[in-house]
Design a protein around this nucleic acid. Sequence first.
RNA 1: GGCGAGGUAGCUCAGCUGGUUAGAGCACACGACUCAUAAUCGUGGGGUCGGGAGUUCAAGUCUCCCCCUCGCCA
Length: 572
Amino acid sequence: MARILITSAIPYINGIKHLGNLVGSQLPADLYARYMRGRGHEVMFICATDEHGTPAELAAAKAGKPVAEYCAEMWQVQSDLAKGFRLSFDHFGRSSSARNHTLTQHFAKKLAENGFIEEVTESQVFSVADNRFLPDRYIEGTCPNCGYDKARGDQCENCTKQLDPTDLIEPRSAISGSTELEVRETKHLYLKQKSLKGEIEAWIDSQQDWPVLTTSIAKKWLHDGDGLQDRGITRDLSWGVPVQFEGAPWTGMDGKVFYVWFDAPIEYIAGTAEWADANGKTEADWERWWRTDKGAEDVRYVQFMGKDNVPFHTLSFPATIMGSREPWKKVDYIKSFNYLNYDGGQFSTSQGRGVFMDQALSILPADYWRWWLLSHAPENSDSEFTWENFQVSVNKDLADVLGNFVSRITKFCRSKFGEALPEGGQTGERAQALIEELEARVRVYEAHMEAMEIRKAATELRAIWVAGNEYLQSAAPWSVFKEDPDRAAAMVRLGLNLVRLYAILSEPFIPDASATMLKAMGCGDKSWPGPIAEALTALKPGHAFETPDVLFAKIADEDREDWQKRFSGVRA
RNA sequence: GGCGAGGUAGCUCAGCUGGUUAGAGCACACGACUCAUAAUCGUGGGGUCGGGAGUUCAAGUCUCCCCCUCGCCA
C-alpha cells in the first residue's frame, strides 16, 4: 500500500467557479483520489478556498459585507457545490485559516533567516478617497494611445497597448472613481528567487516524467528574458496574513499582508493541518504527509492545476519550500490542464460566460457532468464544450451503453428467473473470450489511471462497458432460454456480475451511479478486481438483487435547446 | 513583435524514440437481434494527416519557409 498526497489548485473565493475551472483541477484530482482509494492506497486529498487579495475585498464591498463574513459565506457555497459534484476532499480548507497564518509567517521567517528575503522600496499609486494603494489594474483613465476612456493602468483593452499607471490621462480609482491619487513610496518584501534559480532549475530538470505542458511553462519562466525574477510577496492591504515574525512585529511592515500568491500554496500544507484539527488528529498525523523527517519520505505527492497556475507551482512555491531549508515534501508530479472553451469562445468568470457549477447541478446530476468533463478533459490541447456534443456523449455512453446494459440484464433476469441470481448451467466459449478481453482491458484501464491519462482511461472504461453488450448480444440468453434454461441462467449470472464489476471500475468517474449499481446488486464488497474470472463469480447463485430505476435518463432535444438558449448569454 | 501550444475523416479526438493498406467514438448507410432507456451488436463508405520545399530506402511523425487558430508576455 502506497501513500498518496493529492492537492487540487485552490479556487479563488470570489464567486462560483465554472466548468472550465472544475475540469482543470478539482475534478481530475478527485478522479485520481477515488481511484487510488479504490486500489487500497492511503490517500490524503486536500483542497481549499483561496481567500486573500484585492478581488475578494472588492467583491465583499460590492456585496455590502465585511470581507471576513463574505469569505465565510462563499466558502460555504463552494463547499456545498464541491459536495454536489462529489469531490471527495479529505478536507476543504481556507487559506484564511489560523493554520495558514501561522505557517505562512513561519515560511517567511525561515526565508528571511536564510537570506532569501529582501526589502525593496517602490513607488505605488495611492488613492486618498479609498485610503489604499491601488494595483495597476484598479486604476482607470484615458488611454494616451487611442483615447479610450476606460483604459486600465496595466493595459488598454481597446488598443491592447501596455501601459504604466502614470501614462493614463486623468487617472482615477476604479474602485471609487476618485481622482485624488498620488504616488507614494512603500516598502515591500521580495522573495529572492534569483538566488534559488540554480536549485530550482536542477530540480525541474530532474523531473523526466512530467507532462510537457508543465515543464515547458516552467522552463520558459526560468529562461525567458532576464530569467526568473525576484518577486514581491507583500501587499498594502488589510485582508490577508499579516507580515509578522510569527506574531512578533516585522520592522517596517506594519499594516501589510503577504501577497495572495505567497500564502495560497502554503495552504496545501495548512489545509492538511486543518484536517487534523477537524478530525481530532495530532500534529504528527498531518506532519507524516508533509515532513520528510517525520514520515513523509515514502509519500507520493501529486498536484493538479490549470496551465495558468503552473509557474507558481513549479517555481515560486518550490522556492518557498527550498528556501526554508526545512525538510518539507516537494511535489513529485504535476498534472496540468489546458483550457476548456465554451461554445466557440472562452468560459469567463468575469463576464459570466458559460455554465457555472451551481447552474450545472440545477439541470443535471453530477455524474453526467463528471463523465463528460473527464472524458473530454483538455489534457493535450484546449478542448471545447458544446451542448450537442454533451447531449450525444452522455446519451450514448451513459444511457445507451452502460445504463441500458444494467437495465437489459436485470429486467431479463427478473422476467425469466426472478430477482436472484439463477442456479445451474455453465458458461461457454463466449464467456471465456469475454473474460480474456476484460482481463486485458482492465489492466490497460489501470495503467491509464495510474498515469493520469484521463481521456484514455475513459475510452477504455467505455470499451469495458461495450464488451458486456457484445457478450449478451452474441450469447443471446433470450434465445438460449427457450431450449436450455440452465445455460441461459449461467449467462445471466455472468451478466449480473458484470454490473457489479462495472460499478467498482466506474466509481472514480461516476460515483453516484456506481453506488446505485452496487446497492441494486445487494453488494457491499467494493474491493478492486483481481483476476477477472474470479471477480465475475463474486455474486453467487441465489444472491438477491433489485432491478434499479433507469440509471441515466436521456437528454431530450428540447432540453438541450432550452439550455443552449438559457446559457447562451452572460450570467446576470 | 517575442515565446508556447495547436492545425489528422462531417464533429470530438488518438497516433511514442520516422517503417506493413493512417486509428477510435459520434454522425451517416446497410445488415442482425428483439432481453433492454427505438436500446444493442456487426459490416461499410469517408481523410493527398494546414500549404510548400528538403533530409531519408522510408515522414502525419525530422529540418526549413509560409498560412491560420488559441494562449502567455513585452
